[in-house]
Amino acid sequence: MSANGDSRPEVLRDSAEKLAQTSESVSASSQELTSSTEKLKDSADRRTELAADRTVLAAERTYAAWIRTGLASLASGIGAKKLLDGVVHEWLIIGTGSLLVLFSAMCFVVAVWRELFPGVTSPDPSVRRLPPVLLIISNGFLTLVAIAALFGIWFGRTGG
C-alpha cells in the first residue's frame, strides 16, 4: 500500500485506463486528420483540373479573337480599294490595302500558332481541345483567301 492508501495495482490499472483513453483519442484524431487531408487533396486536384479547363476555353476565345481581327482586316483591305478610289493616290490605296490584307494573313497564321503552341503546359483538362487538323485546314483556307485578295488589290481594277 502506498502512503495515501491506494494499492499499487489500482494505480497501475487507472494509469493504464487513462493511457488507453488517450491512445483512442489520438487514434480518432489521426483518422480525422487523414480524412481531412484526403478531402483537401481532392479539392485541390479538382481546382487544378477546373483551372486547366478554363485555360483551354480562354485559348479558344483568344483564337476566335485572332480570327475576328483577321476577317475584319481582310474586309478592310478589300474595301480600301473601292473606298479610297479618287480620294488618295493609287499607290497609297494599294499600299494600305496590301498592309491590311497581309495583316489578316498574319492573324490567321498566329491564331493557329497560339492555339497549337500555348507555351505553358498544364494538367490534362477534361474539356476537349479543337482538333489541330481542323484549325490548320480552316486557317490555311483563310490565308489563301487573303493571298488571293492581295493579288486582287495589286492587279485588279480600281474604281467602277
Rank of each mutant, 00 (worst) to 15 (best):
A3E: 12
N4G: 03
N4A: 11
D6G: 01
S7C: 01
R8L: 12
L12P: 00
L19I: 10
Q21P: 03
T22H: 10
S23M: 09
S27L: 03
S29L: 09
S29V: 00
Q31H: 04
Q31G: 04
E32H: 07
E32V: 03
T37Y: 08
K39L: 07
D42N: 15
S43L: 10
A44C: 06
R46M: 13
D53A: 11
D53S: 00
R54C: 06
V56Y: 02
A58N: 10
A58Y: 00
R61E: 12
R61M: 12
T62E: 15
Y63T: 01
A65H: 02
A65P: 00
A65K: 06
I67G: 04
R68D: 12
R68H: 08
T69S: 15
T69E: 15
A80W: 00
L84P: 06
D85M: 00
G86W: 00
G86R: 07
V87A: 12
V88P: 05
V88H: 02
W91D: 13
W91N: 13
L92E: 11
I93P: 02
T96R: 09
G97Y: 10
L100Q: 11
L102M: 11
F103M: 03
F103E: 12
C107V: 02
V109G: 00
V109C: 05
A111N: 07
A111E: 12
L116C: 10
F117N: 14
F117Y: 14
P123D: 09
S126I: 04
R128C: 04
R129M: 03
L130K: 13
P132T: 03
V133D: 11
V133L: 15
L134Y: 08
I136M: 13
I137D: 03
G140D: 05
T143L: 12
T143Y: 07
A149G: 11
L150G: 01
L150N: 01
F151M: 07
W154M: 06
R157N: 08
G160Q: 01
G160C: 01
